[in-house]
Amino acid sequence: MTINANVLIASLLDGLLIGFVYGLAAMGLTLIWGVMDVINLSHGALIVLGMFGALLAVQSWGLHPYIAFIIVSIAGLFLGVIIYYIAIRRVLEAPELTTLLSTFAVSMIIIGGGTAAFTTSPRNINFNLGTISFGGGANVLGTKLAAALLAAMVTFLLYMFLYKTRIGKSIRAVSNNRAAAELMGIPSMQILALSFGIGTLLAMGSGALIATLFPFNILSGSVYELKSFVIGVLGGLGNPIGSLLGGLILGFIEGLIPNFMDTSWTPVIEFALFVIILLVKPQGLFGSKD
């Protein structure tokens, strides 16, 4: 395979833009992990729920996809809080296996209900913003650029929220040491519920963005959930900002690999990287938590 510089640059650019969206999805997973030590196995199902939420809002209500993105995200916040009170709260102190399975049960319910309602046939949101040229043959789709910008914006807002507001600081305090935070008078139950809500917001929001880029069906969530795991480990589990960097790295890899070998090798390399990083640097490339 000969490598064409223009093609390489275009595919790297493409990969990096998607990386922002991957990073956003992973932030949801890693925020929840950091705050309450729960690996949310309903993450993929929630991403898919975001996709279908956006699809419905666009097709049935005729909303603009980015308005749909905002609405779906807000709905995610509420849904997350509800899921927390039903499925997480009671088992928070139980061994890992319990929360793994309770979130997996939530995933089964969402995907089962989704399959009954929407079948597993492929869908897509018909939406086009043309092509934007960066010169030298490096063209990217407008929808990808816009999705990357939106994802970057949400990341910035999340950063400001976590580091500059009182509630955000409380979330970080609980994440660092729940017992100590409680001694300082931080109501940890509400903070945990809110964090699960924000994690769900991020998952569903990223789903709404992905839906504007690629076709999907009700089972697509597991692909993005696994990518979120890889990113979470790259960026450090529990470190939401590291997720953005992890997302960019994963996007970069996905842009790079097809230039050198068959695309089917991409998951092999991604997952091998995932296992290796877990083994040699489980706190992630950028450190976990703060």
């Binding site: 039903i86 499925a87 088992v91 399975l101 309770s102 319910i109 089962g112 209900g113």
Partner: peptide, 14 residues
């Protein structure tokens, strides 16, 4: 069936 299995699992865990 997936929904019911999920609800069952959740009920057992909780």
């Amino acid at each position: 069936h997936l929904v019911i299995a999920g609800l069952l699992l959740l009920a057992i865990i909780l």
